[in-house]
Simulated assay, not measured.
Amino acid sequence: MERVLLRLLLVVALPALLVVAWWYASDGSTDIYWPPLRTILSTFPDVWTGERLREDVLPSVLRLSAGYACAAVAGVALGTVIGSYRGVRAVCEPVLEFLRAVPPPVLVPVIMLFAGIGDTMKVVVIASGCVWPILLNTVEGVRAVDSVMSETARSYGITGVARLRHLVLPAASPQIFAGLRQALSIGIILMVISEMFAASNGLGFTIVQFQRGFAIPDMWTGILLLGLLGFVLSVVFRFVERRALGWYHGARDASRRSS
């Protein structure tokens, strides 16, 4: 119990310190672009009502979820194939390095030409940026599968789908989840950027509308809400990761205790 309380204190300490510092640093500010934190917090419940959450936050979360899911499926599938076969990796690696170097926001106008300005465009933008960390981490995870375990599986006749399910994916899963974690933060950024182009709702659209209307405290509430959304998604992801990689974290903790 004491360890849990100590960990909670460590998690809360820095955010609380930053909020206090922001509160006193902005207190008494008359700058229109830097309103006091108390003004922002008092504006928050008036701006983000239940109706606005349904009309702006929910569509953003759905687009993020769709793009992230597409990137996860494509990244893991392609990464497994590329990582498993040396010839495929040799052919694909130069192209992958080229495409990875292209910033996803630059592709937004191009994607708009092919996918239009609806939700499809936003999902494609999110997926196009999220797929790279997932794909590359999957490739490295598959390549790093223990050769002794691979030979043991082969000697027992474990091949094909069974080998993929019971050896390759479990062994590569820590790397895959590392890619998924990186992709989550990229997805949130691209969600906002995609909604700044030809959108009629969403968090990015709403924040830009507040900025254009000089509703600066309202704009800051949108930025705070984005931070809270990122924090909640990070907590949910960590919970899922701990459940999915329970065997991995348990083995690592046991190794630390023994050493």
Rank of each mutant, 00 (worst) to 15 (best):
D56G: 00
A115Y: 12
G227K: 11
H166C: 07
R257D: 05
G67I: 08
P105V: 11
R163A: 12
M219T: 06
Q175E: 12
F237L: 15
S65E: 00
G179Y: 04
R252F: 01
G246T: 03
R38H: 13
R7C: 04
P133T: 08
I117V: 15
G129E: 08
R163Y: 14
R212E: 15
Y85H: 09
L225I: 10
I158L: 14
V88N: 06
L10F: 14
R238S: 14
I216E: 06
A244R: 14
V11C: 08
T43Y: 03
F214P: 02
R212S: 13
P174E: 13
V124R: 02
V12G: 02
G213N: 15
V61A: 15
S259N: 01
I40W: 03
R54Y: 04
L229P: 04
L167Y: 09
L53I: 15
L233C: 14
A21S: 10
V139Q: 06
S194C: 06
Y24T: 13
R256I: 12
E51Y: 07
V123I: 15
P35A: 10
C70H: 00
E241H: 03
L226M: 14
R165M: 13
L58K: 01
L17Y: 02
M112H: 03
L164Q: 00
P36Q: 10
A90K: 09
K122P: 10
A254I: 00
I188P: 05
D253A: 15
T30D: 07
L14P: 02
C130R: 04
V20F: 10
E55M: 11
I188Q: 06
M196A: 09
P109A: 03
Y156F: 14
G250H: 12
L233R: 06
S194R: 01
M191I: 02
G187H: 06
S258C: 12
T221R: 11
N201Q: 13
G129A: 11
P109F: 08
R86Y: 11
V208Y: 08
S185W: 02
D119W: 09
G202V: 09
L41N: 05
V168Y: 07
L64E: 07
V76C: 03
S259R: 14
R242K: 13
D253P: 00
N137Y: 04
A127K: 12
K122A: 09
G75S: 12
A13G: 00
S173Y: 07
A66Y: 10
I111D: 07
L64D: 05
A171K: 01
P170G: 05
G157I: 11
T39F: 02
S234Y: 13
I117R: 13
S259G: 09
S255C: 04
S128W: 04
M121Q: 15
G227P: 05
S42G: 01
V108R: 06
Q175Y: 13
T152Q: 12
A183E: 10
V123Q: 09
V102P: 04
S60P: 01
T49H: 09
F114E: 06
W247R: 10
V123P: 08
S42W: 07
N201P: 04
V76W: 00
T39P: 02
F114R: 00
I223K: 01
S60M: 01
I32W: 09
L41E: 02
L64R: 00
M191Y: 00
A25M: 08
V139E: 03
R154Y: 08
A244T: 12
V88S: 13
G28E: 12
V12C: 12
L228E: 02
